[in-house]
Design a protein around this nucleic acid. Structure first.
Lengths: 316, 316
DNA sequence: AAGTCAGGTGATCATTTGTTCACCGTTGGA
DNA sequence: TCCAACGGTGAACAAATGATCACCTGACTT
C-alpha cells in the first residue's frame, strides 16, 4: 500500500482510538465523508496498523475454557483448578465458582430453578446474602430421600431462596414415585403442576449432572432400584439431570422411570435460556459430554481435569 | 482488583474484540445486562486489559505534525520532509502534499476558493485530472500583475477547474486598485460581488500565506507600493493571505489598502470550514504563526523546518 | 465503439453503543 | 436509629456506527 495511504490510516487511527474523536468529527477534520472514515478505520485494523491486544490473565485454564466453549457451543465454561483430587476442596471450589457466576447473572426478578445434589449444595453454601424479594426460586424436582437432607431439592431451594432474600416455591411431592398412576394423580394437583410450569419458564436453571454408575447418589441412596439401574444401562443411558435420564447423545430416553418422575423434563430444561451445570469428576466425564452434546446445558462449571477429559474424543 | 473480576473482563474483551460479538450477545451469554457489558468493557480498557496499539508509520514528522495540530488547534498539519533547502524541490514537495490532501477532500459538489502564489501553482500542477462537473472553483482575489502569469489568481482558478473537470468562476477585476472609489464602483457590479459572495460560501479555500518583507512577491512585483509597505510595517502588519494583511495575532489590520482590495477578506475566510494553507520557508515563520493564532487556517501544509520553527515560541 | 463488470462512492436505514436520568440499597455518620 | 451521601443499576433516550443499496466511473472485453 501507498505510504501516503498508510499515513492517513495512521492519523485516523490516532484520532479515533487515542484522541477519542468520533468518526464524524474525524471526517470533518480530514475532509472525508463519515462513511469513508469508517471504512478506512476498518482497513487500518485489517492492515494491522491498529492492533488490539488483550492482556491474558494468568490463569492457565482460560484457553481450556475457551476451547470447550467453542467445541460444545456453550455460552461459558469455568474450569476451576484442582491440583489434587481432594473431595472436600473439590465441591467447595466448584461451589465458589458457580456461586460467583450465578450471582453475576442475577438481576432482580428472575425465576431460578434448582435441582439437587452435593455440588449444588456447595453452590448454595458459597453464595453471599442478598435482598432480592422479587426473585423466585423454584424447586425443579420433587423431594429425594437421602441421608444428607441438605442435598434434597426442597431444602436446597428453600436455602437458596433464603440467602438470596427471595421467595421459595417448593414442590410438595417426591421426585420419584412407585407408579405412573401415582405420578399422574399428583401431576393433576395444581399445587404441583403450577410449580413445574413455573420451573419450565425459569430464566436460570441450576443443575447438577449425574452419571449412571454405582457411585452415583441415585443408586447409592437407592433412589432408583437395582432393576431400574440395570434396565437403564441396557437402554444405553449414560447420565441424568434431575433424574431425567439421557443417552450418549443427550437425548431423553423413553423408560417407564420417566413416567414416575415428578419434575422438569429435559425438553423443558432445554428451553431455559440459561442452564448452569455444576459438575465434575472422572466418573462423570462421559455423562457430562452427553449432556453437552444434547445442549442440555449452556454454562458449564467444572474442574480442569474434567475439562481436559472433555476435550478428548469420546471413548465410546 | 479481584482476580475473578479481571478474568471476567478478559473474557468479555475476548468475546468483543476477538470474536466480534455485540455487547448484547455477550450480555446474554454471560448473564449480564447489555449496559453492564458496555461498562465492563470500558473498565477493561482503563485497566489496560485491553490495549489498543497503533503501529507508527516510519515518518519522523508525524509527531511534529501532531504537536503542531494541538498547539494551534488545527484540523490537520502536514510537514513534508525537506533535507536541503532547494527551492524547486521545496515548492514541488509542498505541492504534492497539498494536492493529495485537496484531492482527498473533494467529493462531488464543493465550492473551492483559491488565491494566488507560487505554492498554489505547485499544488495545481501536481493534481491529477478528474471529472467533477458539479464542483465550482472560485477565484477569491482579483488579478495580479506579475511576470509569471501562472501564479495569477485567474490563471490558477482556471487551471485548477480544468484539471478537476469543474466550472471556473473568475473575478474580472484587479486584486488591488488605486483608490477606494474605484473599488466601490467595481464591487457594485454584480458580476464581481457575486463571485466574492460565492467565495465566501466556499467549502474549501486554498490559500498561500505571505510575509511582509522585501522578499515577498507582493513587494518584488511591486503589487504594493513602497509607501504601502512602509505604512503596513509601521502598523505591525506581519503577513497576508490574499493581500489581506494581518498583525502578529492574525487580526485584520485597518488600513486604506484594505479598502482598495477586491477579494475575500479575512473575516469571510475565517468562516470557511476548511482553509488549506500551503506555505513555508524561514522568512515566513512569523507570518504563518500569526495566521495560525488568528485561526485563519484549518489545515497547514508546510515543510518540517518551518514546522519545527513554529513549535518554538515567537521571538516577537 | 458499445457493453459489462469490478471497485469505490454516499444516501439511507438498522443496529449498536454511549449518555443521562431516576431509583435503590448500602454505608457511614450524627 | 435515622438520615444523607454514595456507588451501582437498568430504562429510556441520543448518538455513533455498520450494513445495504443504488449509482457512478473506469477498464477491459467483445
Amino acid at each position: 500500500m501507498d505510504t501516503e495511504q498508510r499515513k492517513l490510516l495512521y492519523k485516523l487511527a490516532v484520532a479515533y482510538y487515542e484522541d477519542g474523536l468520533t468518526q464524524k468529527q474525524i471526517g470533518k477534520r480530514f475532509g472525508v465523508s463519515r462513511i469513508k472514515v469508517s471504512r478506512l478505520l476498518r482497513q487500518a485494523r485489517q492492515e494491522k496498523i491498529v492492533n488490539i491486544h488483550i492482556t491474558p490473565v494468568d490463569d492457565a485454564n482460560i484457553d481450556l475454557e475457551r476451547v470447550l466453549c467453542q467445541k460444545y457451543g456453550l455460552d461459558e465454561v469455568i474450569a476451576v483448578p484442582v491440583k489434587n483430587g481432594q473431595a472436600v476442596d473439590f465441591y467447595h471450589e466448584l461451589g465458589v465458582a458457580a456461586a460467583d457466576t450465578l450471582q453475576r447473572s442475577l438481576q432482580n426478578k428472575e425465576v431460578i430453578a434448582i435441582t439437587w445434589g452435593r455440588t449444588l449444595k456447595a453452590v448454595v453454601n458459597n453464595l453471599p446474602a442478598m435482598t432480592k424479594p422479587e426473585i423466585r426460586v423454584v424447586q425443579a424436582l420433587g423431594g429425594i430421600n437421602s441421608p444428607d437432607v441438605e442435598i434434597n431439592g426442597s431444602e436446597l431451594a428453600r436455602k437458596l431462596a433464603q440467602i438470596v432474600g427471595a421467595r421459595p416455591i417448593l414442590l410438595s411431592s417426591p421426585g420419584l414415585v412407585a407408579s405412573r398412576e401415582i405420578r399422574d394423580a399428583l401431576i393433576k394437583d395444581p399445587q404441583i403442576s403450577r410449580v413445574i410450569d413455573l420451573a419450565a419458564r425459569a430464566d436460570i436453571a441450576l443443575v447438577g449432572v449425574g452419571a449412571l454408575n454405582l457411585e452415583s447418589l441415585a443408586r447409592r441412596y437407592n433412589i432408583i432400584s437395582r432393576d431400574d439401574f440395570e434396565r437403564l444401562k441396557a437402554r444405553d443411558v449414560i447420565g441424568d439431570i434431575g433424574l431425567r435420564y439421557f443417552n450418549s447423545q443427550g437425548e431423553q430416553v423413553d423408560d417407564e422411570l420417566h413416567d414416575r418422575t415428578i419434575g422438569l423434563d429435559l425438553n423443558q430444561l432445554r428451553k431455559v435460556k440459561r442452564v448452569i451445570g455444576v459438575t465434575g469428576g472422572p466418573d462423570k466425564v462421559e455423562s457430562i459430554r452427553a449432556a453437552l452434546k444434547g445442549k442440555l446445558i449452556n454454562v458449564l462449571i467444572t474442574d480442569d481435569n474434567t475439562g481436559k477429559a472433555l476435550l478428548e474424543n469420546s471413548t465410546a
